[in-house]
């Protein structure tokens, strides 16, 4: 879509940087999905896989950092190139956090008892789906340098917040009615909290995608 740089190696560096971010995002997205799946099904081996994957995301982040610093030092990027590299640097950090939250969810899989008849659990998958979709969309927006899609992602965050509030109320009233399951129910609250944070971070990424593409942050009414 964009004209090539006179120095071809610069294009290769940028392409590689984008590839790393896409790979990180793909892994993070998969982690949220699998964490939620293991949560619903009590599949601890799947949860183990999510925890192991976080290491890989961390390594990718380190690689993005190194490459971005190298591009800045050697290529002296300007204008949209500079924004692109800076955004990549920040997005990598945020995606790494998303990975951490997924890991956090996966770690709680073993802590929920009486999964079959545990009503609050049924509230989570829908919220997880929305969070996953946000991450998915924001990565698509990044790949396409699409500020419009990025702003849609930002708008979706309200839904996640609404979900979180409703789950909070539901779980608290459940806790009042069933004091015996209070520790499991608390876990549900934490998971919902993690999903809500994932949504916030996806929003952050969307803002950076918007910045990289246009040079400006999205207007305040969107946030």
């Amino acid at each position: 879509m964009m004209a090539e740089h006179t120095v071809k190696a610069f294009d290769e560096d940028i392409t590689r940087l984008r590839g790393l971010i896409a790979e990180m995002g793909g892994l993070a997205e998969l982690s949220i999905q699998e964490a939620m799946e293991s949560m619903v099904n009590g599949d601890e081996s799947l949860a183990e896989g999510v925890i192991a994957r976080d290491k890989k995301i961390d390594r990718l982040e380190a690689e993005v950092d190194k490459l971005a610093v190298r591009i800045i030092a050697l290529r002296a990027p300007m204008a949209d190139d500079l924004r692109e590299v800076i955004a990549a640097l920040k997005i990598a950090g945020v995606v790494e956090r998303i990975g951490d939250y997924s890991k956090n969810i996966a770690k709680r899989v073993g802590k929920i008892e009486g999964r079959k008849h545990f009503e609050p659990l049924t509230l989570l998958p829908a919220m997880g789906d929305i969070a996953t979709e946000m991450v998915h969309d924001v990565l698509t927006a990044y790949a396409a340098r699409d500020p419009v899609l990025a702003r849609e992602v930002i708008a979706t965050d309200d839904k996640v917040d609404a979900f979180y509030n409703s789950i909070f109320r539901n779980v608290v009233s459940y806790m009042v009615e069933n004091p015996a399951t209070i520790s499991s129910a608390a876990q549900i609250l934490f998971i919902a909290r993690n999903l809500e944070r994932i949504g916030d971070h996806a929003t952050n990424v969307a803002e950076m995608v918007h910045f990289a593409a246009t040079g400006n942050y999205p207007p305040d009414e969107d946030r």
């Binding site: 964009m2 740089h5 006179t6 990027p77 204008a79 190139d81 924004r83 040079g215 400006n216």
Partner: peptide
Amino acid sequence: IFTNPLEERTKDYITGRYG
């Protein structure tokens, strides 16, 4: 100009895409 040029030609020049 160097972070967010408005014109395509300026951007191409300062990012090294000129010619």
